[in-house]
Computed example of a mutant assay.
Amino acid sequence: MGLEWAARDTPAPGGIVTTLVNRPNTALLVVDMQLGVVADAYRRDDVIATIAALVEKARGAGVDVVWVQHSGEELPRGSDGWPYVPELVRSDSEPLVPKEYSDAFEATDLESVLANRGIGRFFLAGAQTDECIRSTLHGGITRGYDVMLVADAHTTEDLSEFGAPPPELVVAHTNLYWQYHRAPGRKAGTVNAADVDFASPS
Rank of each mutant, 00 (worst) to 15 (best):
M1K: 09
L3W: 12
E4K: 11
A6G: 02
A7H: 12
D9N: 15
T10P: 03
A12F: 07
A12W: 13
A12K: 14
P13K: 02
G14C: 02
G15Q: 08
T18Q: 03
V21P: 03
M33D: 03
V37Y: 01
A41F: 04
R43V: 06
R44C: 00
V55D: 00
E56V: 02
K57G: 01
K57R: 15
R59P: 12
G62Y: 10
V65D: 03
V65E: 01
V65Q: 01
V66K: 02
H70Q: 12
S71T: 11
E73R: 13
P76L: 04
R77L: 12
G78S: 05
G78M: 09
S79W: 06
D80A: 14
W82K: 06
W82G: 06
V85T: 07
P86E: 11
E87G: 15
D92P: 14
P95T: 05
P98S: 05
E100H: 10
S102N: 13
D103N: 14
A104I: 04
E106M: 14
A107C: 09
T108V: 13
T108M: 08
V113G: 08
A115I: 10
N116Q: 15
I119T: 01
F122I: 04
L124N: 02
G126W: 00
G126V: 02
Q128R: 12
T129N: 05
T129V: 11
E131H: 13
S135H: 13
L137M: 05
H138I: 04
G139P: 00
I141L: 02
T142S: 15
T142F: 14
G144Q: 01
V147R: 05
M148H: 10
L149C: 03
V150A: 04
A151I: 08
A151Y: 00
D152C: 00
A153G: 08
A153N: 05
H154Y: 03
H154A: 04
T156D: 01
T156S: 07
S160L: 09
E161Q: 13
E161W: 11
F162A: 15
G163M: 07
P166K: 14
P166T: 06
P167M: 08
E168N: 13
E168C: 09
L169E: 15
L169P: 04
L169A: 15
V170I: 11
V171P: 05
V171E: 08
H173G: 06
H173N: 13
H173Q: 14
T174K: 08
N175T: 03
L176Y: 11
Q179I: 05
Y180V: 13
H181R: 15
G185R: 11
R186T: 15
T190A: 12
A194H: 11
F198G: 10
F198S: 09
A199T: 15
A199V: 12
S200N: 12
P201V: 12
P201H: 15
